[in-house]
């Protein structure tokens, strides 16, 4: 029995040794490059330097934040994990856009509603205007002939307009 235990213990400690040796090595990718750090930093904003993305900000605080990103990357964190880490530490304002939840939905919904309203107004407006135009058209048709919409000669049209303007008297 004793020998069996010793045997098991030996295997267990070997496994443990393997785990201790390999897991960090697996998690620890190669040293993150500046570009990998910047790719994440670009999407973050520190609370002090407002509206300056982290990858271009020159302050010491932002430098330190980039250092944190580098460390986390080296520890094998994913992009989302790192972003979540900063949100948990400093709030939603570190993100380039408000996260889509709760009150923040308003930020996205209002422009869409405005767009819908704009399109609706245009459609209704054009319909109404066309209706009015049709009414005018019929009244005009009964009266005089419709003037040609498209002049045959550009220049002749100019001349005619000029004459008309002259007779109206220039300002």
């Amino acid at each position: 029995m004793k020998g069996k235990y010793r045997y098991l213990l030996g295997i267990l400690s070997l496994i443990l040794l393997l785990v201790v040796l390999t897991v960090p090595a697996l998690a620890q990718g190669s040293d993150p490059t500046d570009d990998e750090v910047n790719a994440i930093a670009r999407q973050l904003y520190c609370p002090v330097c407002e509206n300056i993305p982290l990858d271009t900000c020159g302050t010491a605080a932002c430098e330190q934040w980039r250092g944190i990103i580098r460390e986390k990357l080296a520890e094998g964190w994913t992009e989302d994990q790192i972003k979540t880490y900063f949100v948990e530490q400093y709030g939603d304002r570190v993100l380039a856009e408000p996260p889509r939840r709760g009150f923040n939905w308003l930020a996205y919904v209002v422009p869409m509603l405005a767009l819908a309203a704009g399109v609706a107004l245009l459609v209704i407006g054009f319909r109404k205007w066309r209706e009015q135009a049709r009414v005018q058209e019929t009244t005009r048709r009964s009266g005089e002939d419709r003037p040609a919409a498209e002049p045959t000669d550009e220049y002749l049209k100019k001349v005619e307009e000029e004459l008309k303007a002259r007779s109206e008297g220039q300002k």
Binding site: E50, N51, P53, D92, R93, L95, A96, E97, N104, A107
Partner: peptide
């Protein structure tokens, strides 16, 4: 957002 929820958010380039 700061007025209503007390949380300040960034509305950035995207």
């Amino acid at each position: 957002s700061e007025l209503v929820t007390g949380q300040k958010v960034t509305v950035g380039p995207p």
